[in-house]
């Protein structure tokens, strides 16, 4: 048999990112590469800098130092050469926001931050499509209903406003709204946080399926190691703004090397 093709193009190249609000508050000297099709989990205790790092990666907050480079060519054939590599904070804000709006996706921990609570579920799902220029109401609506089914929401509620939905339903709606344009790269901050266990399980299963079907690359922040085990291929462990250990998810959870990771893993029952 032939050697398997294991090389994956680098999608996101994170170089020495620092964003500090105070000593050990924020994130410091973070270096890693995200490969196409990979789900990278960022775990660590509360206040360790996970969300800060995610904001910097997602283009929402400029770092004090370092670069975030997005390689658009990764896994694709034809693209404008000049645009093949984007240095996230060297390109203008216009380009950066367009990237986040059109090619990337961001799932907030609190669905209220990611949804328009006053407009209908259908409009929420359709917004990114409309931003991309889709101008057919009937198609937008059909796509909206299809995605509601996909995330296990009743398509009959397409005209209801998200504030009439439960927390778990809102979170699923936010995910549908984000994934409807099939972004290549998705950032998620505690996507299952604050949900009860059975809702969380549905959501996890759904995310696993979507990752596989859409070939998503994901950076996932969570402090829940069970969630990390189920979703992430690879983990990065943060403490006081720094990365203390990275590796294959199973290795980090089953054979942690760093003192802090061992403590983190042992303080949780069977992740």
């Amino acid at each position: 048999m032939k050697k398997p093709a294991l090389e994956r193009p680098v999608l996101l190249d994170v170089q020495d990112i620092t964003r500090l609000y105070g000593p050990a508050k924020g994130c410091e000297a973070i270096d890693f590469q995200l490969h196409a099709g990979e789900v990278l989990g960022i775990v660590g205790e509360s206040g360790s800098g996970k969300s800060t790092l995610l904001r910097v990666l997602a283009g929402l907050e400029a770092p004090d130092a370092g670069r975030v480079v997005y390689r658009r060519h990764a896994g694709e054939d034809v693209l404008d050469r000049d645009e093949a590599e984007l240095d996230l904070y060297a390109i203008g804000e216009a380009r950066r926001r367009a990237l986040l709006r059109l090619e990337w996706g961001l799932v907030h921990q609190n669905p209220r931050d990611g949804l328009r609570m006053g407009v209908s579920a259908g409009a929420n799902i359709g917004e990114r499509l409309m931003a991309q220029g889709q101008r057919h109401y009937g198609q937008l609506r059909a796509t909206g209903q299809e995605w509601m089914r996909q995330v296990e929401l009743d398509p009959g509620r397409i005209d209801d406003a998200p504030r009439t939905f439960s927390g778990g339903m809102q979170q699923r709606l936010q995910i549908a709204r984000t994934l409807v344009t099939r972004p290549r790269l998705v950032f998620m901050d505690e996507p299952t946080g604050g949900l009860d266990v059975s809702v969380q399980a549905r959501l996890l299963d759904m995310l696993r399926t979507l990752v596989r079907q859409l070939g998503l690359s994901v950076v996932l922040v969570t402090h829940d190691l069970a969630v990390a085990r189920l979703l992430a291929h690879r983990l990065m462990v943060m403490r006081r703004g720094q990365v203390v250990e990275t590796g294959l998810t199973d290795q980090i959870l089953d054979d942690p090397q760093h003192e802090y990771t061992q403590l983190l893993v042992s303080s949780v029952l069977t992740p």
């Binding site: 216009a94 709006r101 209908s120 259908g122 409009a123 359709g126 917004e127 409309m130 931003a131």
Partner: peptide, 22 residues
């Protein structure tokens, strides 16, 4: 101002979409 500068006009159609839905 930023939305105009970046031509982020998706929300205008969100409003019209809502009209039709309602």
């Amino acid at each position: 101002r930023l939305m105009h500068a970046l031509e982020e006009y998706g929300v205008m159609h969100v409003k019209l979409y809502e009209d039709i839905a309602r």
